[in-house]
């Protein structure tokens, strides 16, 4: 009989080293995807647009003037002084565009991030208790939430919260935060559904049984095996959801039910533009619309690219350590999907 584990001293690996290693392991696929991304036309488009938007949000406010300063003549067309013209009260549209981008994108990002995390956790929990009370309850709840059109649900939710005037501890939530919460709630069911469906397919697979057999604890099973294998569709959906969130926020704000003036968002800019359109002030409506279109296009392209690039079979096709020996010693039963790699390879070149 075998002496029990004589060859291995027991005990966890060193702390900081382990944390660093895990972080590096988690970041590796993202880095690889980013490198591959910049090799395809659609990927380049997405990257450029995302970088531009990020620049507007991060650096813009320091370069553009105060969005609410009424310093210029009203309703002037774009010029050297005011690149995007001025509105009917003499505010600089570029400044308002930049401030609006900040709020629109911030709301979209924050609410999608929250919806992704919360939705994925709930979805996985439901899948692990498939058929149980928790599962049935959450599924019916998502049915209820998904039954309402987003354009109805979001104003109703934000209206409810605004009426109650919610405060989290000492922090009084402003209009923008309420908007983010409302959109976040509206977007969550998609992630619950997606995570549950993907997880249901994965938990039956042999590698999950293998992990259990090898002694994985529940958290190893869920976060070490299940989550990485359902992450791809969720990350892709998250990119699309940011685009949806931008449109919903703009639409609801345009209707006057979301972000309230004088706060600028791309939606409220459009509201301001509406009344001036007949006077020929085209610049008021053009630039916010372009902003929305660019952001949605960027995120949709990004989602499409991520779908391809997060596939592990894409790894190592172009980058990574070179293979030391081309022919494999044992019979070459190629796993399915290799041919798909070849196709993608062609497509990229």
């Amino acid at each position: 009989m075998i002496p029990a584990q004589s060859s291995l001293p027991s005990g966890p690996a060193a702390g900081p080293e382990r944390v660093l290693g895990r972080l590096r392991a988690a970041a590796a696929p993202v880095g690889r995807a980013a490198r591959l991304m910049t090799r395809r036309p659609a990927g380049i488009c997405a990257t450029v647009l995302v970088v531009l938007l990020a620049a507007v949000v991060l650096v813009g406010p320091w370069l553009a003037p105060d969005p609410n300063a009424q310093t210029a003549a009203p309703l002037t067309a774009p010029s050297g002084d005011h690149w995007m013209g001025t509105d009917n009260t003499g505010r600089d549209v570029l400044a308002r565009f930049v401030a609006g981008a900040r709020i629109s994108l911030l709301v979209a990002l924050v609410c999608t991030a929250a919806a992704t995390v919360v939705g994925t956790l709930i979805g996985m929990a439901a899948a692990l208790r498939a058929g149980g009370r928790f599962d049935i309850l959450t599924m019916r709840l998502t049915d209820v939430v998904m039954a309402f059109p987003l354009l109805v649900l979001v104003p109703v939710l934000s209206g409810v919260f605004t009426q109650k005037g919610i405060a989290v501890g000492p922090v009084e939530l402003d209009n923008v935060a309420i908007m983010a919460i409302a959109i976040g709630i509206a977007l969550t069911p998609v992630f619950v559904r997606l995570a549950r469906a993907s997880a249901l397919a994965e938990v039956r697979k042999d590698y999950m049984t293998a992990a259990r057999c090898l002694g994985a604890r529940r958290r190893d099973l869920v976060f070490g095996n299940l989550l990485p294998n359902i992450a791809t569709p969720i990350v892709v959906q998250a990119a699309f959801s940011v685009a949806v969130a931008i449109i919903v926020e703009a639409s609801v704000s345009f209707l006057g039910l979301g972000i309230q003036p004088p706060d600028a968002s791309w939606g409220t800019l459009l509201t301001d533009a509406r009344s001036q359109l007949l006077l020929g002030a085209w610049w008021l409506i053009l630039f916010p619309t372009l902003g929305i279109a660019a952001a949605v296009l960027a995120l949709t392209l990004l989602g499409d690219e991520l779908r391809d690039l997060l596939d592990p079979r894409m790894r190592r096709t172009f980058h990574g350590k070179p293979r030391r020996r081309a022919p494999q010693p044992e019979a070459a039963t190629e796993p399915a999907g290799r041919s798909a790699d070849g196709e993608l390879e062609e497509e990229i070149r």
Partner: peptide
């Protein structure tokens, strides 16, 4: 190395 990790057997270089 998966099972060694699950059972916390050995340090990184042992593994």
């Amino acid at each position: 190395a998966e099972p060694l990790r699950y059972h916390q057997l050995g340090r990184a270089d042992d593994r």
